[in-house]
């Protein structure tokens, strides 16, 4: 979103205008949902965390400084909400590698659909084997296209650290992929 348009959008959002709220949810809900699922979140938990993220964002709109891009700010809130959500021991549970937790593949041919599910399982398993910090960097970089600098500002660490986490994650993924059938 361009800075001028973003400012107008935020002003409308601060007023609680229906259109702005709809735009906010329609635009960012899918990417936040995918972010959380790729981070290994259960779909039900993901919905709760997204609602919490939007509510925190709505509460914090008055403190939002437009020098940071809105998308980065929202992802930062989402990441913090995810962390807080799983800090609560009662909510922490082992995520089973079950195709039920995978997103629907749309209206594909059944064979294609099964293949895609199997492939998705492989990716899910590979991501799950990464340490959470490395997984976060991989998800933000490759699935959501954030730059290293943006990721560094999100996770509060130097760019060099992000880079090294990304390199470690890639080499881990490479070895996981080479294991192949081991997944």
């Amino acid at each position: 979103m361009q800075p001028d348009k973003e400012l107008q959008f935020l002003q409308a959002l601060q007023k609680g205008e229906q259109q702005a709220v709809e735009k906010l949810v329609n635009e960012y809900y899918p990417s936040l949902l995918n972010f959380l699922l790729r981070m290994g979140c259960q779909p039900g938990d993901a919905e709760d965390i997204i609602q919490e993220t939007f509510i925190k964002a709505a509460r914090g709109l008055n403190n939002y400084q437009s020098r940071n891009r809105f998308r980065i700010w929202l992802f930062k809130i989402c990441h913090n909400s995810l962390r807080d959500y799983y800090k609560k021991a009662s909510r922490r549970r082992e995520i089973p590698l079950d195709p039920v937790n995978l997103p629907a593949a749309g209206t594909d041919h059944p064979e294609n659909y099964i293949m895609k599910r199997e492939q998705a399982l492989r990716v899910q398993a590979a991501l799950k084997r990464l340490p959470s910090k490395q997984r976060l960097v991989v998800v933000l970089r490759y699935y959501h296209g954030f730059s290293l600098k943006e990721i560094a500002s999100m996770v509060h660490c130097p760019v060099g650290t992000v880079k090294s986490r990304l390199n470690k994650a890639l080499s881990s993924l490479k070895s996981i992929m080479q294991e192949g059938d081991g997944l």
Partner: peptide, 8 residues
């Protein structure tokens, strides 16, 4: 490989 994970 990562991108083969479908979008929800």
């Amino acid at each position: 490989f990562l991108m083969s994970y479908p979008e929800a």
